[in-house]
């Protein structure tokens, strides 16, 4: 057998020193590679935003001073805002600040953007986090039950619900939820936000409807995805037959073998969603008047507060890129095929 033994980590394990091992570890190298690849994307997004924003007609000075402002007043305002400098210089100045954590001051309020973003991000983060918990928490058991007996009643109903639900826009759900639970029955506040500081129960009550609006389409998507992947495995994979041949029960085959492998795919999908979900928060926060980052962005666009817009977009991009990065890394840590470098 010795001749057929593959080269395993023996050689690597023999390499002296923990540092050498760390550098040569596939996961560490993967992290490094991804991080390096993420930098130009974030940079590109910030440049693109800058270009797009400088193309937008109308400016904050004009809006702040009103239609009667003289060109001199506007020019003075521009100097004060730093808008009189050439774009490249302005961008580099902004980039320098951004790297040290200073995203500039709002053109409208004059307040530092970084501080404002922090509290806004917390609200949006809670919203998105809650939506993920709700959607995954429901989708996983439903998909498992559906895949346990494919094409039976439960499976069919859950597939019908999920394909139908995928066609419902999140703002439609939001309005219908408001209509039913807030207007008709007044179970939940229709709009407004209660910070966690004023009691976690009240906070959750104010967050539940918006979170459900975001979670429902996600739930439908995850259910379909997971159920499909599970059933494909149960039907087509040889290791499922091996597991069954051991004499273990169908529940264990589903959980220990099929779900285990599907969870890696699910993780990727969740990570990719996180990036696109940010777009959904803009409209949901608007409907429910949640002081999140999406609402901030919309306000800033309407007031031509480009410093704030720039900051919001960059934060979104960083979150999207980071989400993909973390997904890849989690995948690498959890999936042994990648963890040990697939030969």
């Amino acid at each position: 057998m010795t001749t057929t033994e593959p080269v395993t980590d023996d050689a690597r394990e023999a390499a002296p020193g923990a540092v050498a091992r760390l550098v040569h570890s596939p996961s560490v190298r993967l992290i490094a590679r991804r991080l390096v690849a993420a930098v130009p994307i974030v940079l590109g997004v910030s440049i693109l935003t800058f270009i797009v924003l400088s193309l937008i007609p109308g400016d904050a000075a004009q809006l702040l001073l009103g239609p009667e402002a003289t060109p001199e007043q506007i020019a003075a305002m521009h100097r004060q805002m730093g808008l009189d400098q050439p774009p490249v210089q302005r961008y580099l100045g902004w980039l320098g600040g951004a790297l040290t954590g200073d995203l500039g001051n709002s053109l409208v309020s004059g307040q530092p953007v970084t501080g404002e973003l922090g509290s806004r991000l917390a609200v949006t983060g809670e919203l998105v986090g809650l939506a993920f918990v709700l959607s995954l928490g429901l989708a996983i058991p439903v998909a498992l039950l559906a895949a346990y007996k494919p094409n039976r009643l439960f499976d069919r109903v859950s597939m019908l619900v999920s394909i139908t639900g995928l066609a419902v826009a999140n703002y439609v759900i939001a309005l219908l939820l408001v209509l039913v639970f807030a207007v008709q029955f007044a179970f939940f506040p229709a709009i407004g936000f209660v910070p966690i500081g004023q009691g976690i129960g009240e906070n959750l009550r104010s967050m539940l409807l918006p979170a459900v609006s975001i979670a429902f389409p996600l739930f439908c998507f995850y259910t379909r995805f997971l159920r499909g992947d599970l059933v494909d495995q149960l039907r087509g994979e040889d290791y499922i037959v091996t597991a069954r041949a051991k004499g273990i029960g169908p529940g264990q085959v589903l959980l220990r073998h099929a779900f285990r492998n599907s969870s890696f795919g699910l993780l990727t999908v969740v990570g990719l969603n996180l990036g696109t979900l940010i777009g959904a928060t803009v409209i949901i926060e608007q409907i429910f008047a949640l002081p999140g980052i999406g609402q901030l962005l919309l306000q800033a666009i309407n007031t031509r507060d480009f410093v704030v817009v720039q900051a919001c977009v960059v934060v979104f991009a960083v979150v999207a890129v980071l989400a993909n990065l973390v997904t890849d890394l989690l995948y690498a840590v959890l999936d042994p095929r990648i963890r040990y470098g697939n030969r």
Binding site: I41, V45, I278, A280, I301
Partner: peptide, 20 residues
């Protein structure tokens, strides 16, 4: 370039374009 466009939140981009 496409990576950048995809990382760029689509709704934000459309908002900006619609505004401009």
């Amino acid at each position: 370039v496409l990576d950048v466009l995809i990382a760029f939140p689509s709704l934000v981009l459309t908002l900006a374009v619609a505004q401009s």
